[in-house]
């Protein structure tokens, strides 16, 4: 019980912390790729603290509800990941967060916010099935949806699920809002939807969504690390390489539109998962 308590507390504190640090590193690396120096490592934290201290400005009070719910769901997902709970359940809870984010964006009447919300829904439509299929792959490999079973494996899952790992990478690109999938909102605002679904979240509420996004990042990278769960160094390495790839992709791609995303995401993702799953079934 105490062990669980510690784990939960650790997840609640370190989940966003790790996510924030990764985001800070991301910004520095991206800047370097663009021949810039970039902000300090702790920049995301400065941003969030500043946002928390800003004037409370709201468009619709229910946005406050949705931002809170998003954060709650995202952190529960991280907690469950740390508790090595059921993978499918974690994915469902993670989806709850996204849905609330979208509903909050809908509650503003600004068309930018609403179209952003729609695009986010389309992004979810694109990556949710893929995530589930990855989880199915994990199940087929370990015989269980529990993360604990992954840790009980003797050799890294990556060897058996290489294509599904690629699918997870695809999902990660969408979820982290990297080009070519930064459709609903993006880190820098030069896009047709201004800030998309985050347009009308402001001040402290924006801070909440940002923290929740860190949690999401931590969660997905945690998921990635499961593919080399046998060795902590291997896991770390895998996550690092994956994330570097994400940054690289972000910097060598233009933003595409959602039709392309659905076509490519589903086409590529489903095909890769199919190949990998069929192979697993056949075994």
């Amino acid at each position: 019980m105490i062990r669980h308590g510690i784990l939960i507390a650790a997840a609640l504190i370190f989940g966003p912390l790790v996510g924030g640090l990764i985001s800070g590193m991301d910004r520095i690396l991206t800047a370097r790729v663009q021949s810039r120096i970039g902000p300090p490592l702790l920049q995301p934290f400065y941003d969030v603290i500043k946002l928390l201290g800003k004037e409370k400005v709201v468009v619709n009070v229910w946005q406050a509800f949705c931002a809170n719910a998003y954060l709650t769901a995202a952190s529960i997902a991280v907690v469950l990941l740390c508790l090595r709970s059921d993978l499918l359940l974690i994915l469902f809870i993670q989806a709850v967060g996204s849905v609330f984010l979208v509903v909050g964006a809908f509650s503003s009447t600004s068309p930018y916010s609403q179209i952003g919300a729609h695009r986010e829904l389309l992004q979810m439509l694109c990556y949710e099935p893929l995530l589930i299929l990855v989880a199915v792959g994990v199940y087929l490999q370990t015989g269980s949806f529990r993360i604990a079973a992954v840790h009980a494996l003797h050799q890294p899952m990556l060897l058996k699920l290489p294509f599904l790992f690629l699918v997870l990478g695809l999902v990660l690109t969408i979820k982290l809002r990297k080009s070519p999938f930064d459709l609903s909102t993006s880190h820098h605002a030069h896009q047709e939807l201004v800030k998309g679904l985050l347009t009308d979240y402001s001040g402290p509420l924006l801070a909440l969504t940002e923290i929740a996004h860190w949690c999401d990042t931590a969660l997905l990278l945690g998921f990635c690390s499961l593919f080399w769960a046998t060795n902590p160094i291997g896991a770390l390495l895998l996550v690092a390489v994956t994330y570097l790839m994400e940054i690289w992709i972000d910097n060598v791609c233009a933003r595409m539109n959602w039709r392309w995303m659905l076509g490519y995401g589903w086409g590529m993702g489903m095909a890769l998962s199919l190949v990998n799953l069929v192979w697993l079934y056949a075994r």
Partner: peptide, 8 residues
Amino acid sequence: VNTGNPMH
């Protein structure tokens, strides 16, 4: 950061 959005 250039936000392009007064709300931020």
